[in-house]
Amino acid sequence: MLRLVSLQLIATAMVGVLAALLGGWSAAISAVLGGICCVVPNAIMAVRLFAGTQKPGGTNPATFFIWEFVKIALTVALLWLTATLYRDLNWLALLAGFIVALKSYIFLLFRH
Rank of each mutant, 00 (worst) to 15 (best):
residue 63 T to N: 08
residue 94 L to F: 04
residue 89 L to N: 14
residue 83 A to M: 12
residue 96 A to K: 01
residue 70 V to C: 08
residue 68 E to I: 06
residue 90 N to I: 00
residue 96 A to Q: 02
residue 76 V to G: 09
residue 99 I to D: 03
residue 61 P to Q: 15
residue 86 Y to G: 02
residue 85 L to S: 15
residue 66 I to P: 04
residue 101 A to K: 01
residue 83 A to E: 04
residue 93 A to P: 01
residue 63 T to A: 11
residue 71 K to L: 08
residue 85 L to D: 06
residue 86 Y to T: 02
residue 83 A to I: 06
residue 69 F to W: 15
residue 87 R to L: 08
residue 66 I to R: 13
residue 70 V to Q: 03
residue 65 F to A: 12
residue 90 N to K: 00
residue 74 L to Y: 03
residue 98 F to N: 01
residue 79 L to Q: 04
residue 72 I to P: 05
residue 67 W to P: 04
residue 97 G to L: 01
residue 76 V to R: 12
residue 64 F to V: 14
residue 75 T to I: 12
residue 101 A to S: 06
residue 67 W to R: 12
residue 73 A to Q: 12
residue 84 T to I: 11
residue 91 W to T: 03
residue 81 L to R: 13
residue 65 F to Y: 09
residue 62 A to N: 15
residue 86 Y to F: 14
residue 97 G to Q: 01
residue 73 A to C: 10
residue 84 T to W: 15
residue 86 Y to E: 03
residue 70 V to G: 04
residue 62 A to H: 06
residue 61 P to R: 10
residue 85 L to C: 08
residue 74 L to C: 04
residue 81 L to A: 11
residue 71 K to T: 05
residue 71 K to S: 12
residue 82 T to M: 09
residue 100 V to K: 00
residue 100 V to Q: 01
residue 94 L to H: 03
residue 69 F to H: 14
residue 71 K to Y: 13
residue 69 F to C: 14
residue 72 I to R: 11
residue 78 L to F: 08
residue 83 A to C: 10
residue 92 L to Y: 08
residue 96 A to C: 07
residue 88 D to S: 13
residue 97 G to H: 00
residue 94 L to C: 04
residue 87 R to D: 06
residue 86 Y to I: 03
residue 78 L to A: 13
residue 92 L to G: 09
residue 63 T to Q: 10
residue 72 I to K: 14
residue 96 A to M: 07
residue 93 A to H: 01
residue 66 I to M: 11
residue 87 R to I: 08
residue 73 A to D: 13
residue 68 E to V: 13
residue 98 F to E: 01
residue 67 W to A: 07
residue 101 A to L: 03
residue 86 Y to L: 04
residue 95 L to I: 05
residue 76 V to W: 09
residue 86 Y to V: 02
residue 84 T to P: 05
residue 72 I to G: 11
residue 87 R to M: 06
residue 100 V to P: 00
residue 67 W to K: 14
residue 101 A to H: 02
residue 91 W to A: 06
residue 88 D to Y: 10
residue 80 W to F: 14
residue 78 L to K: 05
residue 64 F to L: 15
residue 67 W to Q: 07
residue 99 I to M: 06
residue 78 L to D: 05
residue 90 N to Y: 00
residue 89 L to K: 07
residue 101 A to F: 03
residue 72 I to A: 12
residue 99 I to Y: 03
residue 83 A to V: 04
residue 72 I to H: 11
residue 67 W to F: 13
residue 99 I to A: 05
residue 77 A to W: 13
residue 85 L to N: 05
residue 67 W to S: 05
residue 88 D to I: 05
residue 85 L to W: 10
residue 78 L to T: 09
residue 64 F to D: 08
residue 90 N to L: 00
residue 74 L to I: 07
residue 99 I to C: 04
residue 79 L to M: 07
